[in-house]
Amino acid sequence: MSTIQPANKIRVLYVDDEPNNLLAFKASFRRKFEIFTAHSAAEGISVLNSEMVHVVIADQRMPQSTGVEFFDIVRVSHPEPVRMLLTGYTDVEAIVDAINKGQIFRYIKKPWDELELETAINNAFEVYHTRLQLKEKVQELERTNDELNRFVYSTSHDLRSPLASVMGVLNLAKMEKSVIDPNGYMQMIESCIQKMDFFILKVIEYYKSIRVEEVNQPVDFKMLINESIELCRMQNPAITFKVEVNQPRQFYVDVFRMSVILNNLISNAVKYQKPDELNPIVKLVVDVTDEKAVISIEDNGVGILEDHVNNIFKMFFRSNFTVNGLGIGLYIVKEALNRIGGEISVKSKQGDGTKFEVSIPNKLPVTSNKPSQLVAEEI
């Protein structure tokens, strides 16, 4: 197996309470690697604080702390160097536990074989180098993703202005009756513009949901749900909303994201009603405890195919193409829930409606304990 040859020597820290071992290690490897030595775990931490090290090797049996205990600290304070354990004892359980917990890359038995240890150090440096490259790639992807999000957000805002101008011209033409349109082309144009504007608004909503810092505030679920209902009612004025809010205590949550979640779920419940349904209903139930709020939103609409249920939270997935949707609303819901530590489940049967259940943790401050209200009403 080929080994990476760095421009500078591999920097190795060896921690051992036996001076002879430190001298022997340095004598064996000083020509191949840049060696740092320490007589104790505390001295080893001091070296790591002041020097860049690629590989850390420690003896398991030391008087003040074992090698595993030393690595337990190093793993948190200096996670970059690759860790290896030297032991002359058959302390198998401690070694296996250290490997399983990610405290060490591998272990070498004492007395060490010089070729085996040299190979292990080179292998450890390959791991270090690969991790460093991966970290740089992740940072590069994060920067690119951030730039892309900013570009999409900026472009979405810029697109709304000409769309508003076109819509204004169309409305003016309709008011003045200055255009003869026997085939209804203007209505088609207006419908397309409205759809595009709605899509742009969803993109902006998604951007804000992933970028805005989480701010937990007390929420009145009755008021928040009524606001969402008023936004969605115009989609289908015939729908009856049945709301039950059981909030006997104060609940803290990110109100912006909570509003995004409710707006999209209620909008879906309204949008995916059956066209011939004589009694369209959307039921909303909220139960608040000290630990969480459970919100269910149930409709008697078209439902979801069983094969599609596992895909509905994917971006641009649409279960029903007879309804004028974008396939982004539930994706936004899922992203917003991830940000506030919530969960969502769905039960649905095609033709019988859909029920979403959302569980959200209460970010209630320790000192707050304010009772609220029980509300059951039909809107």
Rank of each mutant, 00 (worst) to 15 (best):
R83K: 14
M84W: 00
T87Y: 02
Y89Q: 15
D91K: 05
V92D: 03
D97F: 10
N100I: 09
N100H: 07
K101T: 06
K101A: 13
G102S: 10
G102K: 07
G102T: 10
I104M: 04
I104Q: 01
F105I: 03
R106Y: 03
Y107D: 00
W112G: 01
D113K: 11
E116G: 04
L117D: 01
E118A: 14
E118Q: 14
T119E: 12
I121W: 00
N122G: 07
A124G: 05
Y128F: 12
Y128S: 00
Y128D: 00
H129F: 11
H129C: 04
L132F: 05
K137R: 15
V138H: 09
L141H: 09
T144M: 09
D146M: 09
D146Y: 08
F151D: 05
Y153K: 12
T155P: 00
T155A: 12
L159W: 04
P162Y: 07
A164K: 15
A164S: 14
S165R: 13
A173F: 07
K174P: 01
E176N: 05
K177Q: 11
P182K: 07
G184Y: 04
Q187F: 06
I189E: 02
C192R: 14
I193H: 05
D197A: 12
D197N: 14
F199E: 04
K202W: 01
V203Q: 15
I204N: 06
E205N: 07
Y206C: 04
Y207I: 07
S209G: 04
R211M: 07
Q217H: 06
Q217V: 13
F221T: 02
K222N: 13
L224R: 13
I225Y: 01
I225F: 02
E227K: 14
E227Y: 08
I229F: 05
